[in-house]
Write a protein that binds this DNA or RNA. Sequence first.
DNA 1: CAAGATTGATAGATCAATCTTA
DNA 2: TAAGATTGATCTATCAATCTTG
Lengths: 161, 161
Amino acid sequence: MPKWLSDEEQRVWRQLLQMTSRLDGQLNRQLQDSSGLSMADYDVLVQLSEAPDVRMRVFELSDALQWEQSRLSHHLARMGKRELIKREYCAEDRRGAFVVLTDSGRRAIEGAAPAHAEAVRHFVFDGLTATQMKSLAAITSSVLRRLQGTEQQAWTPPTGS
Amino acid sequence: MPKWLSDEEQRVWRQLLQMTSRLDGQLNRQLQDSSGLSMADYDVLVQLSEAPDVRMRVFELSDALQWEQSRLSHHLARMGKRELIKREYCAEDRRGAFVVLTDSGRRAIEGAAPAHAEAVRHFVFDGLTATQMKSLAAITSSVLRRLQGTEQQAWTPPTGS
DNA sequence: CAAGATTGATAGATCAATCTTA
DNA sequence: TAAGATTGATCTATCAATCTTG
């Protein structure tokens, strides 16, 4: 059980970090400039637009996005001010609330999606072979499996005694 | 030139986004709990600790980390308050400044590194075959190559006329 | 004026505390 | 008391404006 990453691991790890931060930056800028949406806005709008009756309970959204409740609540408040979404009362459980896509929210996501998809394809998928595509699916699955069950608590390394 | 991502692309893309956000969250929590450092702190301290005389110019750090000047400047101010780094005057160019690792900063990074490396290995590399490792290197290189030259400006899709 | 760097304003993320209803 | 959700405080990120020296 070596104490450090190997040279190869280190190189790949730094590349992965760089890839994700630059890709994130580029896609956010593209979205922002072309449509005024952030990736976070986009993700919320995608979930709602795919939901039956374009509405979801707050906790459903939170599960789907894997966001903390409070982050989501603050974000929905801001999106509400911009009229991308609205809240509706929930009759069955009066503690809860529905989040509903507005017409203007639907127009925003429909306007933003084509160029966003194009950008993702351009920067990521157009450069990959079919084999690399399969590999990427396997790699992300592997890491996600290893992250299972560590959702809220921090992982601690096994003691080396 | 399809307008949307294919089903497979969509599935892999969502997995990649999930992987990076959860991995980021987990590694940040582990670092924070075990050492009081964030990943951002960690990256700054790594750069300084690898630099000759544990010091760098602000613009060198900014290049190495690929951070905007203002983000770095704010972050250094906060790290300065915590005495992880300090500033020193630059004689050669009096507009500039050196950032120097303090003793307490060196202790912090040395204390944090083993468990952090262990976590990265545990969640990522221990689950990959040698072939997948090579694939991951190729994939990240491909995406980074495609991002080259788009650093500050937003990319816009070619017009479809 | 341009390069190196900081500052202030604003938007977003995280944590703990709170409020209401089941 | 616990579940669904919001609020306020604090920390971080981003953008535009500024300050100083080359």
